[in-house]
């Protein structure tokens, strides 16, 4: 076994990504995480601290951090910023009254230096509710088109049915992989 083989093997081991999932409380972050991992979503409680899941997807090892969104927890979000490859911002599409809050929190996050290199995926969640706003309306309300500092994408999804979760995560992985593993 030559040196090159060893190096390649090490590189393969490093195909690891760190994803940080944030959003206001009641957005459905934990439900997305559990549904994506194939777990029961009917017993989920409001998140008191955070959940971490490590899972394999498309040959990558994903470390997903799901941090509670209550107001009193938001000041702790910054403790999780370090070496984040992808930021998943989850929005309750049916909660019109807090969209302004949602926009403010997101734009504050995007100013964070430690998140500067991260790709942003916005999940417009709860699309299965009849009163949910479309992903275009959410895109407008969060003024996503103004974002020039990050690669971003918005995807309408439903954590309860699992619709479009895969599509979102796949986009995120492709974008991150194109950035990080270009050497392969």
């Amino acid at each position: 076994m030559g040196l090159l083989t060893i190096l390649k093997k090490m590189k393969q081991k490093e195909r690891e990504m760190r994803l940080l999932m944030l959003g206001l409380d009641n957005a459905g972050k934990t439900t997305i995480l559990k549904k994506f991992n194939g777990e029961d979503v009917s017993t989920i409680s409001p998140t008191l601290g955070f959940n971490i899941k490590t899972l394999e997807h498309k040959g990558f090892k994903l470390n997903i951090w799901d941090v509670g969104g209550q107001k009193s927890l938001r000041s702790y979000w910054r403790n999780y910023f370090e070496s984040t490859d992808g930021l998943v911002w989850v929005v309750d599409s049916a909660d019109r009254l807090r969209l302004e809050d949602c926009r403010k929190e997101l734009s504050a996050l995007l100013l964070e230096e430690r998140l500067a290199g991260a790709t942003l995926l916005v999940f417009a969640n709860k699309q299965d509710l009849p009163g949910a706003l479309s992903k275009e309306a959410i895109r407008e309300a969060l003024v996503l088109d103004e974002i020039k500092s990050h690669h971003w994408c918005i995807i309408g999804c439903s954590a309860v049915s699992g619709e479009n979760l895969l599509a979102g995560v796949d986009w995120l992985l492709d974008d991150i992989a194109a950035r990080i593993f270009t050497a392969d």
């Binding site: 019109r96 009254l97 969209l99 302004e100 926009r103 009163g131 706003l133 309306a137 407008e140 309300a141």
Partner: peptide, 11 residues
């Protein structure tokens, strides 16, 4: 409604 007027009207 101030912050979300645009969206409110539509839906």
């Amino acid at each position: 409604a101030a912050g979300t007027v645009k969206v409110d009207g539509a839906a």
